[in-house]
Amino acid sequence: MGRFKTLILMAATAFLLASCGGGGMVRRVSEPAAGIQQLTVRADGSWSVDVRINNFSSIPMRFDAISLAMSLGSEQAGTLQGNAGISIGPESADVVTLTHSPTPAARIAMADALAGQRSIGYALKGTVNATPEEGNPREYPIERTSSLSPVPGLPGVMR
Rank of each mutant, 00 (worst) to 15 (best):
I120Y: 02
E133M: 09
C20F: 05
I66M: 14
F4T: 07
T13S: 14
P150C: 06
L9E: 08
S101N: 13
R28C: 06
V51C: 00
R27Y: 04
V41T: 12
T145K: 07
T127S: 01
P60W: 09
L39P: 02
R159H: 13
M25Q: 15
E139G: 07
S146M: 03
G135S: 06
S74W: 04
G35P: 04
I53R: 02
G126Y: 02
V51P: 00
T145I: 13
Y140N: 14
N136D: 11
A115P: 04
P155D: 14
A93G: 12
R144C: 15
T127I: 09
F4A: 11
A65L: 13
L80F: 03
I108K: 12
R3T: 08
L124K: 05
E134K: 14
A93K: 13
A109M: 01
G21V: 14
S147P: 02
V49S: 01
L148Q: 06
V49N: 02
G135Q: 07
G21K: 10
V26D: 12
G153T: 03
A12W: 08
A123D: 04
S119F: 08
T103S: 13
V26I: 13
G23S: 11
L98D: 11
G21P: 02
P141T: 09
N136I: 06
R52G: 14
S57V: 05
V96R: 06
T6R: 15
T6S: 11
L17M: 06
V157C: 08
A69T: 10
D50H: 07
Y122Q: 06
D44G: 05
L148R: 04
R3G: 12
A69E: 13
A65Y: 10
G21M: 10
A33Q: 14
I59F: 12
V29Q: 06
F63L: 08
L16K: 00
I88G: 01
G45N: 11
N54A: 15
E75L: 01
N54G: 14
S57P: 09
G153W: 02
N55H: 02
E75G: 00
